[in-house]
Design a binder for these strands. Structure first.
Lengths: 122, 122
DNA sequence: GTAAACGTTGACATCGGCGTCAATGTCAAG
DNA sequence: CTTGACATTGACGCCGATGTCAACGTTTAC
């Protein structure tokens, strides 16, 4: 299928698809006229990428998952490297949450100080 | 005092000080030779800006605080507009935290699924 | 007089994922 | 032949705060 169809079926813009390819996450065959030619498997790959990006992964971090799928695994996460990324990501998220909680506390404290009448739930 | 001294006393780069001024948060008198000339009060203003930026406020959001100080209040947060920003910020942070928690859950779930042996604390 | 240290403005680079426009090629339908 | 939908590559814009460099003026100390 051509890029337009892949875009439509995955809900990803053609711009993004080319971007993914530019970064080596997607490989497209070319038809004689130079058009990109994708197979059914690519729908899966793109879906995996999107799902991960939506959860906050960077494009780079999706690479192990894509590689994993391409190696024939049923899930992008069933490879050691993917698991590592999962765990790093969990740690990242936890760190971010701690930062936000600390920040929240600080803001709440300052608010309480400068506005004694303001109640802050939490 | 000149910009170098203010930078040193506040721990803020001269680049940043000029940036704050460019965005109307700082006003500097000029000496005859064109150098910026700051007063003691400006140390306070800059400290307020930095403190807020460090807690995750945008430069724009620090404006009410600066204005508040400039109007003679002892604290940047003791004005109605500042309190509003505080509250908006708290809401923002809470929203971000919720997003991260949801994200964390999702990542943990996927990890658990693709790596049944991996334990995830939380 | 001259070097060092400081000041000035202006402009480009960063980061990430993508929108968007431009200039141009391809192909199917009328 | 022409129109329109689709494809190609390349490049700029965005967002926010700041680093950094350039090219130049000022002050201080020797």
């Amino acid at each position: 299928m051509r890029i337009g169809e892949l875009a439509e079926r995955t809900g990803v813009s053609t711009r993004s698809l080319r971007y993914y390819e530019q970064h080596g996450l997607l490989h497209a065959r070319r038809t004689p006229n130079g058009y990109r030619d994708y197979g059914e498997d690519d729908v899966r790959l793109v879906s995996e990428i999107r799902a991960l990006l939506d959860i906050g992964f960077t494009l780079e971090e999706t690479r192990p998952f894509v590689d994993c799928l391409r190696r024939g695994h049923s899930t992008g996460g069933s490879c050691a490297e993917s698991v590592e990324v999962y765990e790093r990501k969990l740690a990242d998220i936890d760190r971010e949450i701690r930062v936000l909680l600390a920040r929240r506390a600080e803001v709440a404290a300052q608010l309480a100080q400068s506005c004694p009448g303001c109640f802050v739930r939490g």
